[in-house]
Amino acid sequence: MTMNINQSDINKKQIDIINQQYTEKIRESAKKVLLEKKVDVVIGFKNGTEPMTTEPCLINKASDADKLIWNEHCRLNLANYVKGRKDKAAVVAKGCDSRNLVNHIIEHQIKRENLYIIGVPCNGMVDKSLNLKELKVEAESDTMQENLDLFPINRDMLQDNCKTCIKRNPVIFDEMIAEPVKEREWTKEEKLKESFESVNKIEAMAESDRWSFFNDMLSSCTRCYACRNACPLCYCPTCFVDESRPQWVGKGTDLIDVRTYHFLRAFHCAGRCTDCGACEAACPMNIKVRLFTKKLDKECFENFGWEAGMSLDERPPLDVYKVNDNANFIR
């Protein structure tokens, strides 16, 4: 397998150096655009309250720009925090965030001229559950720190969507804070086989197994809607789960309602999902909700050659048609 990803041999020290460089550049850019009054606010990440956590934050004074940071725990998608903004905002954006900004622009949620995109070449995000699994989560912070020092990003530690990332550098940006990282060159076959491996596995199951597989997977879902709320694509004024005339989805804990919610949520993201992984990063029960959106990504890629958020000039696949689209399933 030809992997161009150089993460496997990046050790903790190198990651620290990269993080530090990125952080400094982000702060510098934030100060500059605020002082030059190019933007009203800067949206980025700051350190969280515990080791290995981050929190999206809004900076509106150049003197606060030193709060901004960058590291391998910036999992949430900051495109989620610009939708509906009327002011001019600078956004710190990794590859997938920028793809969602493209989505927002072509869906008329924000105007390109109101955005200043601080592009971050992304080395991938660490899987959030490793915090708990790999490291002893004890009250003593000394042991925490020791463990942190042994913490490299190798491929196994990346969150699932980063393992199959197709765009690590921002698609659109106003400035880049570092040289672009090397992208993996995928052939179509490689993508279908490797990138959609999780989907392929489920497709290979028998029908009834697929049904029980998802029942099982979703039985711990509490419908907190963290997956929906973390998703930049979800901006309907009233979500279908809140509609009451007619009520499409029951409000109780019936598994069929849970399945319906996840089915329709994923369907709403068809042809729009950039596989940024914010939904899985947000899920408190660690449910692999990407298995749904990824299937629709695969359909769009296979049938329409579409990958969301890669260009400002193309409409999403369900917003266009071709006269000769596949019709062999229709009588």
């Binding site: 489920i202 049904w211 369907f267 369900l318 048609y321």
Partner: peptide
């Protein structure tokens, strides 16, 4: 004019997604 062209794309995804979820 074009309603069913849009519908066709949607239906294909819908059918495949339903089957992915286990519907025969």
């Amino acid at each position: 004019i074009t309603g069913n062209y849009y519908a066709r794309r949607k239906f294909m995804l819908l059918k495949n997604f339903l089957e992915y979820n286990g519907i025969e």
